[in-house]
Design a protein around this nucleic acid. Structure first.
Lengths: 344, 344
DNA sequence: TTGCAGCATGACAACGTTGTCAAATAGTCA
DNA sequence: TGACTATTTGACAACGTTGTCATGCTGCAA
């Protein structure tokens, strides 16, 4: 048995002594087959361990329920994205649909490769976290009418009408910054992702706006941006805590930066001295001393919403593009409510 | 252009004024086509945005490099599994191969559905975290000779010769327990996953063996097992800390349990009073006070190894099954080195 | 000019499936 | 009985691709 060719409709037909079309009918439950033959065919299917070839099936079928959707994300090892994936999977699962996912590592070139690879496998639709500002990686698919839902990042396509699901990055950043301002801070450091990235740009913009609204000067030396691991962020933030005067509060606008800041503050023994608030929640945020205040996101919910929207399109909805921008508010856990040292 | 049919070889051929076989040759770089026609075809491909249909290609092709592999995991939202996936993806990516993954949620029924769904899509091979002790979900594929690599859990198939990549669960649990014993603890509580699960069974076994080797009685009231979220574990462990006398040390043999324990200990203000060691590392383990001592795993490395092994098989290696059992040692960060309260 | 090698190109079958249609069989009614 | 209908079954094309083979053309030597 080992290494034997995988059985096809014809093999089952031979085993059952019927034509392969009859097997096809039985396998697809089409009806119009006598009970006698149904039994014979089903026995043969079981005996041979037959599984229909979905590639051939989809190739032939004109119209059918989607069986596979594609998800282009940045890094599945980042819990934000893995939870997005989980939310998508949840919805897809209820539709007997699988998710073909891949990490771009933030490289546009890799994003293009992934989109092409998914298109060549003829996924029914795409959910994409695009770091290509104008989403050129998806241009040809969009014009062709392939269903695409953008998550987390919103592409800047003039005159385009696309589906988007994302957090309200700017409002969240404004809320976080105002929270620190309200607690008396005037020297706030910002650590966030590369502003070439949509979400990072909006968060930095929100930070600056809140600072400006408070009548404070924009201290560019207090803005640090770039794409780093949490180990790297830890070292970077540690260095910024060493200068004098050090900032009295920090806003970390990305989850790795938040992890890095916790570690750096801990390392310097400043967790009770420097206020800290992060964008996007982290595990154990409430088991630290003090707890880490954050503006949370709910990536699993974002994933679910994106998938729901994609399936609506796959079900034939061709209405105008839908933009879902999810707001959220500060969760106070202690670190964000520390007041500046009056002697500082 | 919107909604137009996706172009095929024939469409490109018509556009370029050649036969579709010539287009096929150009697209596959087969050579034997005049420069003039190559140019005409390439222009037509670009103009129409042609992408070959991998389904049809694979259907026809007798032998070819693998383009998609399947990965059956338990829950992609758990960082252990998402890091496994990342490691697999990393290796697959270098082979121009995509990973089709799905979460079983620990349900054998769902595991079977996923395996079948992957087989029906004709993935080249499978990497599986199976929670079905005898791997019956994979029996027919194994006998058929489909390349399968088991990760994390090793199936109990009499006489079977399979590839396995996993941590040394038993040795790790023994090391963790001995570490607590060496620090003077005699009343150690165990919190771990359902022992129906391979890794959980070995870890519990290691715990019991270390306890027995120390000549201590097995206190069944101190063993709590089950599959829970970290919120649930937090509540469960909190309850066990409320009894008198409470354990002087706890060993959490699963990452959600570790997170739950940190939260529960924090909630009761016992982080400096009760020793704690976990199996599998967690984020921020070193930024807590005290740091969380653990026996770490390197899921990304496990994923890489599993994928490497799978590709070896796909490249034709048909040697005997390879078992990689990765050992690891305690990382001391503070929580595991707390000594029992002498007044306790 | 003829013959032949060598190359470029195309025609056609096949992969495993579904959709279309025709054939064969059984059943009904005048 | 004969014609007509309904039901079961099978033959065959088609999906988009690659593999095999035949055809046509060019250039060169005799």
């Amino acid at each position: 048995m080992s290494g034997s060719r995988r059985p096809t409709l014809r093999d089952v037909a031979a085993e059952a002594g019927v034509s392969f079309k009859t097997v096809s009918r039985v396998v697809n439950g089409e009806g119009g087959v006598s009970e006698l033959l149904v039994d014979r065919v089903e026995a043969a299917v079981a005996r041979l361990g037959y599984h229909p070839d979905q590639r051939a099936r989809l190739l032939r079928r004109s119209t059918s329920a989607p069986t596979t959707i594609g998800f282009v994300l940045v890094d599945v090892a980042n819990s934000f994205f893995s939870n997005l994936l989980r939310g998508i999977e949840e919805v897809a699962m209820s539709r007997q649909c699988l998710v073909l996912a891949g990490s771009t590592e933030g490289l546009v070139e890799r994003e293009q490769q992934l989109v092409d690879a998914l298109v060549e496998r003829r996924v029914a639709g795409l959910i994409v976290v695009s770091w290509d500002a104008e989403a050129e990686t998806l241009r040809s698919e969009l014009t062709r009418g392939t269903p695409v839902v953008f998550v987390d990042a919103e592409p800047d396509i003039p005159g385009a009408d696309v589906d988007v699901v994302r957090s309200d990055h700017r409002a969240g950043a404004i809320a976080a910054t105002r929270h620190l301002l309200a607690h008396g801070h005037t020297d706030i450091a910002y650590f966030g992702d590369n502003p070439a990235i949509f979400s990072a740009r909006l968060r930095l913009d929100g930070f600056r706006r809140a600072i400006a609204d408070a009548g404070l000067p924009v201290a560019s030396g207090r803005e640090v941006t770039g794409s780093h691991s949490h180990r790297e962020w830890s070292a970077i933030i540690d260095r910024h805590l060493a200068v004098s005067p050090r900032p009295s509060a920090i806003f970390t606008a990305q989850n790795f930066a938040t992890l890095g800041a916790v570690r750096a503050l801990h390392h310097r023994g400043l967790r009770d001295a420097v206020a800290h608030i992060g964008f996007d929640d982290i595990d154990l945020a409430d088991a630290l001393t003090p707890g880490v205040s954050v503006v949370p996101q709910d990536p699993r919910d974002l994933g679910r919403r994106a998938a729901e929207q994609l399936f609506k399109r796959l079900d034939g909805d061709d209405g105008p593009g839908v933009r879902q921008v999810i707001a959220s508010a500060v969760i106070q856990r202690g670190s964000g409510e520390i007041r500046p040292d009056p002697t500082g």
